Simulated assay, not measured.
Amino acid sequence: METLEEDELCFPQLLNTSCTKLKRSQFEAILTYIILSSISLLTTTLNLLVIISISHFKQLHTPTNVLLLSLAVSDFFVGLIMFFQIVLINGCWFLGDIMCTVYQYTAYVITSASVGTMVLISVDRYVAICDPLHYSTKVTLKRVQVCVCVCWICSVIYQSFLLKDNLEQPGKYIPCSGQCVVTGDYIAGLADLFFSFIGPVTVVVVLYMRVFVVAVSQARAMRSHVVSVTFKGTVSVTVKKSELKAALTLGVVVVIFLICLSFVICLFYFNSCLNPLIYAFFYPWFRKCLKIIITLQLLQPDSCEANIL
């Protein structure tokens, strides 16, 4: 009976303070390991390709793509920290309190940055669709780069403040050896719920509802205008077709992100793997970049000047 109890503990030598392992069959543990490892590898690889593509090719240095780059960076790190989830397959953490705090802190920063980037993407599409004549002056490359930097810096500062006690005393809130958790007070939890979820989701939903209404109304106006002036030849349109396609693509990204964020952490991790697949499906430039990278044409002189669009 004593042997059985020891086998159920994360640290058998710490009989009184050790956490218990999760009860999983060998098949379930192996299957979970394979699935998480595959998602982690796929997520890091695909998002690294997005990062290389947007960073390397000058034609892709646009405000919208800078936002996609920020999202790809956060998704890339999500893929990396998934390796820590693999460590926790049996419910035991063997890397110590300091690494536990670093892991949890990094995960929270990445999540905050991802949510902030989604808000910026929504603002970008809102201006592009609802105020297209002033888009190029309002949304410049430099302004978007500054906004992205501010988003990441604020995420780091915000989570540092929120997890202050955990950073100062790693393992302070861990009830038993072998567990990896960070926590705070009730008020901080409510504030985090609002600033990291309710507030951003509300902004994203409102902006995209406005984008949808404007896009539909402009599409109807364009159709009626085409019918009335067909004999006059070409028609001037307020919103470019490419902008509408970008709004649709990023809208899909945002919706899937919100769905995954609203459910469980596994779906949130899987969402980071889905984003590059969405880009590959909707964006021809991403498929062209993949071909250039895979065939090593990227190493050729002046490859950054290649015609991607």
Rank of each mutant, 00 (worst) to 15 (best):
E5H: 12
L9P: 07
F11M: 14
T17I: 08
T17N: 04
S18Y: 05
T20K: 15
K21D: 06
L22T: 04
R24M: 09
S25W: 03
Q26K: 10
F27S: 13
A29I: 08
S40C: 10
N47V: 02
S53H: 07
I54M: 10
H56D: 06
L60N: 09
V66C: 15
L71Q: 10
V73I: 13
I81H: 15
I86C: 05
V87A: 02
I89H: 04
N90Y: 10
I98D: 12
C100F: 01
A107V: 04
A107I: 00
T117A: 05
M118C: 14
V119N: 04
V119M: 14
S122Q: 08
C130K: 12
H134Q: 09
T137F: 10
T140C: 04
K142V: 03
R143Q: 00
V146N: 06
I157V: 15
Y173M: 14
C180Q: 04
C180W: 09
D185T: 00
Y186T: 05
L190M: 13
A191I: 13
V203S: 04
L207E: 05
R210P: 01
F212R: 14
F212S: 10
V216R: 12
R223V: 08
H225A: 11
V226Y: 03
T230Y: 03
S236Y: 01
V237N: 05
L244A: 01
A247G: 07
G251T: 03
I256A: 06
L258E: 05
C266Q: 14
C266H: 08
N275W: 03
P276W: 00
F282T: 10
F282Q: 03
P284L: 08
C289K: 01
Q297E: 14
L298I: 15
Q300L: 15
D302L: 12
I308T: 11
I308A: 13
